[in-house]
Design a protein around this nucleic acid. Sequence first.
DNA 1: GTTGAGCGTT
Length: 303
Amino acid sequence: MSIEYVVVSEGEQDEPIELPTEEDGSLLLSTISAQFAGASGLKYRAGGRLRGLRLADDRVLPPAEGWAAHHYFCAFPRTDAPTPTPRPRCSDLIVLGLPWKTGEEAVRDYFAAFGELLMVQVKRDTKTGLSKGFGFIKFADYDAQLRALGRRHMIDGRWCDVRIPNSKDGGSAAHRKVFVGRCTESLTADDLREYFGAFGQVTDVFVPKPFRAFSFVTFLDPEVAQSLCGQDHIIKGVSVNISTASPKRERGARSQLLGWGLLEGGAPRVYSWPPDAWQHSAHSAHSAHSTAPPDAKPYLKYE
DNA sequence: GTTGAGCGTT
């Protein structure tokens, strides 16, 4: 095949230049970039659509119909690269509040709707084989993990909570959690989740039961939590105060602080702990919650 | 009425 010239412009509307092909009929990428710095390939318009040309060993290959059939213009690497933030890895997630009767299969069936599952476990008493009322799951896709962490789950007639377990590394609750003071009884966990969800993904809301005038909100991103500390916010007409989630008085042993995820102790780090209290939420008062079987036992207690 | 449930036999 003899050398021919290919009509190439930088953008579709720009003035074209003729570029020489190689003996094998290909167009060297270096020939293109000599004229159009940064170009990474060629494309052309076929009918209404854009078509890209094959690139092999830094050579752009002609379309089946030959070079002469089209005018070409350059493709460039994305510059507005959507922040090549490496996707965070999925962690094991703990599923709390499972009905006694619920086994791996039901848990898998339920969470498969969020994404591919790599692991499902329901923890059981080794002697009796009875479920302990919690289990662990792991997703393949971090987006699935985010979706699962962002809400509660109705499994076999019970509301269940999914959270990051306290026994694995990955981020201490200490910096992801805020204390919300001056709460009134009118502020439900749903209210708080909805309100604070506007600032960043909320992974946990804890509302003490019976009522106490505070709550805890845990975010996925520690920077969101930290940015809110020291502020007063008005939620449903209630002025609440946000501060760091550490007790005003050291009331306990280091082990307790460790337990709340407030100290970075030695070995296993603690986070997203304790769970939220959704028992008061509008959701659980109605709808699916009331479908819980009448013989449902209080969980975490054996008989 | 401003500081919290519960966490993995391998």
